[in-house]
């Protein structure tokens, strides 16, 4: 197992998503009420774990082409991080609720930034893989 730079990066991104999902102000789960913002928090936390797992997978598969595809998967996961609290699941309806005003925008921005980062990583790795295969 080799500690590839892309793997380390994705582990860090995953940790950040998990931390944000845990620390940002979401409403707690209630017995008698379906809390969409709680679901969004949960979904983003799971996605953060997935990103972290993909980062660890990069250590196991050092080949650039595999890591490139892992980066693409991180890209998709990052997009989901931004979409869960905003489009797919949402948060509380009142716009001034902290889950709506703070948590959702932070995760939206984080997801977009991480998506851009992982896309750049994917391009670098897949280009590198293509150049290597030309020399083989």
């Amino acid at each position: 197992m080799k500690f590839q730079w892309s793997g380390i990066l994705f582990v860090v991104l995953g940790i950040i998503v998990i931390a944000l999902s845990s620390l940002l102000p979401f409403c707690p789960k209630l017995e008698d009420m379906e809390m969409t913002c709680h679901l969004s928090q949960f979904a983003d936390k799971i996605t953060g774990i997935v990103i972290l797992g993909l980062g660890i997978a990069s250590f196991v598969f050092p080949q650039k082409i595999v890591r490139g595809f892992i980066a693409l998967e991180v890209f998709v996961a990052s997009v989901l991080v931004s979409l869960f609290p905003t489009v797919i699941l949402g948060t509380c309806g009142h716009v001034h609720m902290r889950c709506h005003a703070i948590a959702a925008p932070v995760l939206l921005l984080t997801g977009v930034i991480f998506a851009l980062i992982s896309l750049v990583v994917a391009i670098v790795l897949l280009r590198g893989a293509r150049n290597e295969s030309k020399h083989d």
Partner: peptide, 17 residues
């Protein structure tokens, strides 16, 4: 401009508050 849009529109409620 993409980034600026992501910063301004989602966060403007928080800015007001």
């Amino acid at each position: 401009t993409l980034f600026g849009s992501l910063v301004f529109f989602p966060f403007r409620v928080w800015i007001v508050d």
